[in-house]
Computed example of a mutant assay.
Amino acid sequence: MSLSPSTSTLSGSRASLLVGLVRRPIEALSFWTAVALPVLYVLILTGVVTGVSPASFAALIGLNALALVVGHGHRRD
């Protein structure tokens, strides 16, 4: 029996490290996007920003929902 870790364990730990390095910034960006997007709702609904189609507004709401889901785990310790 060898005392060195197996190749699959090394690649698994590298993969989990990579996932951790990529996941945290994406969660942070998504969280802050979800916080900031409702400002656009106010600007659109008050008429400060004009020319937004209903489909674009619906896409904005969908993007906000996606950002909420992805950013949900940000700074959850």
Rank of each mutant, 00 (worst) to 15 (best):
G20H: 09
G20V: 01
F31T: 07
W32E: 05
S16M: 09
S8Y: 02
S16R: 10
S11V: 12
A67C: 06
V52P: 01
M1K: 08
S56T: 08
V49M: 00
G12K: 01
V22M: 11
A55E: 14
V19E: 13
L18N: 15
V49P: 02
S30T: 00
F57K: 10
R14M: 13
L43G: 00
V35K: 07
P54G: 13
L10W: 03
V19S: 11
V42H: 11
L21D: 10
G73Q: 07
L37H: 04
T46M: 04
V69S: 02
H72T: 02
L37N: 04
T33I: 07
A15T: 12
L63F: 06
D77Y: 10
S2E: 13
S30Q: 00
L3F: 04
I61S: 03
L40F: 09
N64Y: 09
E27Y: 01
S11T: 13
T7K: 15
S56D: 09
R76I: 03
R24W: 12
V35H: 00
I26V: 15
R14Q: 12
T7N: 12
M1C: 10
L37P: 09
N64D: 13
V39L: 15
T33K: 08
S2C: 03
V52K: 05
L10G: 00
V52C: 03
S6V: 03
A59L: 11
S13R: 13
R75H: 14
D77M: 08
S30V: 02
L66Y: 06
S13G: 04
Y41P: 01
A36C: 13
V69P: 00
H74N: 10
R24P: 01
S6A: 12
G20A: 10
A58W: 06
A65V: 11
V35N: 03
I26Q: 01
R14S: 11
G47A: 09
G62Q: 04
W32N: 11
V69Y: 05
T46C: 03
R14D: 09
L45G: 12
P25L: 06
W32G: 06
S6M: 06
A15E: 10
A59E: 05
P38K: 14
G20S: 14
L18Q: 15
V35A: 05
A15L: 14
V42S: 14
